[in-house]
Design a protein around this nucleic acid. Structure first.
Lengths: 150, 150
DNA sequence: ATATAGTTTGTAATAATTACAATTTTGTTT
DNA sequence: AAACAAAATTGTAATTATTACAAACTATAT
């Protein structure tokens, strides 16, 4: 459903020259909402682009983040991951399977709920939730019915 | 102002046996609200406890987190850091100096502002803000009055 | 005093990320 | 279209955070 030209326009609109590698990374981001890590993106793209370097993936995602074309998530302490969905939303990390889910925010502007000290400039906010996702809860329940709460 | 016995009681209340090393780490946490990293804690304690191992600091903070005696923050992508303040509050990372500040939350229960999917279990939420702190803004303004907004 | 479990330690291994110089590609000027 | 300059990509090496793990140590119970 994602038009190639849309991706080019998206990059261009963020002041990013649409090279083949950058297009590939952005295309991966907009077609996979799994909040991939650098390694995940590299591993997925490498077979079709054997000359792609992991450094390029790092460089590209850094550029995307700086130019506001993607968001860097630090919800998972093991590695950062990325999201090209730009509207305000929260993220949920399942501590069991490690998946990161998007969660809609009812009332935008979370910052207004905080008492940010006078004189501080806020550029960005992130709401991270942790717990166990539905799939993992069901899977844990079914087989033995013997599970620790953590 | 923090009584040694209070720290012992705090650990015990969380089911943690108060060894010398664990006491030292917890004491550091409750007397330093800088949201220290493992390395910061290790470097601070090592001179007075030359046999202390960095692995022990890792083990100890992992134990604290698991037992609910401390929180692990993933706001800074460079390394995780820790906080022994347990009441609900947000964190602010200054992208210039790297300091992490506590920020009070006006209305608790941020989770209620999100549309968490049916069947998910949420154990924890974290609100992370990023920007530039007052000190860094002032410092950037004074000398030249020539600053890029980022 | 001995056995046992729990804790700490140091080292080695792993994994994520960054630095950097060489190469390739792209764009521009002649 | 050749020559040049700038930008982007690549591969390797270095750095850093974290984890694995076995040995040494400590505390506790018998």
């Amino acid at each position: 459903m994602v038009d190639h030209q849309d991706i080019i326009d998206n990059l261009t609109a963020h002041g990013i020259k649409p090279s083949v590698q950058r297009l590939a990374v952005m295309e991966y981001l907009v077609t996979h909402h799994s909040h991939p890590s650098v390694d995940e993106i590299y591993t997925a793209l490498h077979p079709k682009m054997p000359t792609l370097s992991k450094t390029t993936v790092y460089n590209t995602l850094k550029l995307f983040t700086e130019q506001g074309a993607a968001r860097q998530l630090t919800i998972d302490e093991r590695n950062v991951c990325f999201d090209a969905t730009l509207h305000e939303h929260a993220h949920f990390l399942c501590k069991h399977c490690g998946k990161v889910y998007d969660v809609a925010i009812r009332k935008p502007q979370l910052i207004e709920d905080t008492e940010v000290p006078e004189g501080f400039r806020i550029d960005h906010s992130a709401l991270y939730l942790r717990g166990v996702c539905k799939d993992c809860l069901l899977a844990a329940e079914t087989p033995t019915r013997q599970e620790s709460p953590e």
